[in-house]
Amino acid sequence: MRKAPAEIRTLIQKALSGDEGACQRLLNLYKGRIFSYVYRMVRNYHDAEDITFDTFIKCFNALATFDTSRPFAAWLFTIAHNLTMDHFRKNRIEVDYIDEFHPGDDDLAGDYEKKRKLEQIDLALSQLPPLDRELVILFHKEEYSYQEISEILTIPVTTIKTRLHRARRKLRDLVGKPKE
């Protein structure tokens, strides 16, 4: 497993000593990734923000217990995953695709097709079951290995592989034409 880079370890040490600048830097480095992941899971902007907020509060409060020989981002994803699962358990919400965050109208014409494709992927992603969606995001977007995902989600590698293969196939079917 990859360990936290030296820069991150330094920031963690500074954050532990109460350095606000270090906390701000850690927030800036990871809030986009964590928020995007949570938002794609819960599909509600305010819920995603609340979960991301709680993720960072929990992270900073437990920073002293973080083992710096492990990757910091994976630890954050573990916290975010647990809070997202709590949210699902509490609310039992249906996946609801919100399109207010789609790329704006000021896109260049040449980029239109790319943007459309990405929107299509994002929409297809939202139609996958939550666990499959999570696996696709962690493996393909966040580029975690099977082993790392297994540690984040605490599920066996074999389950991850099987479900990811099925999820990829489903995603391709939702985006393109289904194979006969």
Binding site: G32, K141, V175
Partner: peptide, 18 residues
């Protein structure tokens, strides 16, 4: 489809989140 996943839009919380 899997390559496009890497280029998905990154979302951010509201300003003032930090």
């Amino acid at each position: 489809s899997t390559a496009a996943l890497r280029k998905l839009t990154e979302f951010y919380p509201q300003p003032g989140f930090n």
